[in-house]
Nucleic acid binder design. Structure first.
Lengths: 201, 201
DNA sequence: GACGAATAGTCAGATTCTTGAGTATCATGG
DNA sequence: CCATGATACTCAAGAATCTGACTATTCGTC
């Protein structure tokens, strides 16, 4: 009888690689990963806790990360994970594969697409909310950048700093949110002006 | 015996609303929708043909769009769809609901996150590719904007043009791709400089 | 001392999205 | 005349993601 060996698939599975990438520099628990991939820090991917715990289990099963139990008396025990050599090799393989273009998929844009046919008030409000959210995230990410830079200037860090990867993805996150904020504010202003012009007209 | 009535769910289902939004201004076939939601035009959402045909069937079943057969002798027959009044009402309801923040999910960012641990060459190449793709899309979308504006200046169109919704989402698409392009070029330059500095060092 | 929030994690189920393979007709170029 | 590609659409199956509900401990606070 042949043994059934579960082979690691060679398809995309970007979440798997996102988790691996996060575990290259830091040893993290599922819970910490979940916070990073939830609202906020990990600007290169987004996922829910359930996905991350499941992915960690698969990664450990496949030998791409290794976990160690940490006993805590003040909090529930936890397991900290790091990428193994096999994990790093898998990431290297992944880095050489083709990537599909990234597309926008956003509720708010759908609503704006329909702006000529729906109530302007709610839309303007939501655009303002989103802009505020973007501002908050920009500040959060700005703080992260400062922390990564330490004492260095940005130019110096970009030339000689270690761990440039997370810095670059963070920069993209900030630029994305700035674009978001600017577009939201501008669109809200335009819709507002058209609304009042129409009301007067 | 009670009749089983299939009620329209009140959950998010953004693809459904994206299709509805696209069918507000234009009468389109599934095939045309598929081209718009595939690579390129519809900057507010992305979907594959199979999803769109399935969604159109559901939308028609629920009375939110109506289709009419168009017989063609030069090409296969097609069905053109438009949003119904019920569809518009559904979109209005949707426009008033809360939206979840939009997150980036991008293979290339995952790879850049791991930039300190993987080969720089492939990464730089992919960043250049992505920048070129962004350039192409910017041009495509710029053309769309000009077409929508007709003879008007941008300022004039934003004030008085009809169908501002698609124009605004197109602006967001362009800004997104510009952000993408700039970040890709800058990141590639930084990685390149660090690589040559290391090689010399 | 009860209550909510944070830490740490798990399970089941449904929905959504992607992959892959088809059907059929007509136009165009070599 | 044959191959390629565009138009127009369908079916099945699997992977990824999301919703919602759970367990359990500890910290702060009212």
């Amino acid at each position: 009888m042949a043994a059934f060996i579960r082979e690691v698939e060679d398809v995309a599975m970007a979440l798997r690689h996102a988790v691996l990438a996060a575990l290259l520099d830091e040893e993290l628990s599922g819970y910490q990963l979940a916070k990073a991939f939830g609202l906020g820090v990990a600007n290169f991917w987004h996922a829910l806790p359930q996905q991350l715990y499941a992915e960690l289990a698969r990664l450990e099963r496949d030998g791409l990360v290794s976990g160690r139990e940490v006993v805590q008396d003040t909090r529930p025990n936890k397991r900290l994970f790091t990428a193994t050599d096999a994990g790093l090799a898998e990431l290297e393989r992944f880095a050489a594969t083709a990537n599909k273009p990234s597309f926008i998929r956003d509720d708010l844009l759908v609503k704006v697409q329909a702006a000529d046919h729906v109530a302007a008030g709610a839309l303007i409000e939501q655009l303002a909310e989103r802009a505020a959210f973007a501002d908050a995230k920009i500040e959060l990410l700005g703080g992260l950048l400062r922390k990564m830079r330490g004492g260095m200037s940005e130019e110096e860090f970009l030339r000689h700093g270690e761990r440039i990867g997370p810095y670059l993805t963070c920069l993209r996150g900030i630029a994305f949110e700035q674009g978001n904020r600017d577009w939201c504010r501008r669109s809200a202003a335009i819709l507002e002006e058209r609304r009042t012009a129409h009301a007067r007209g």
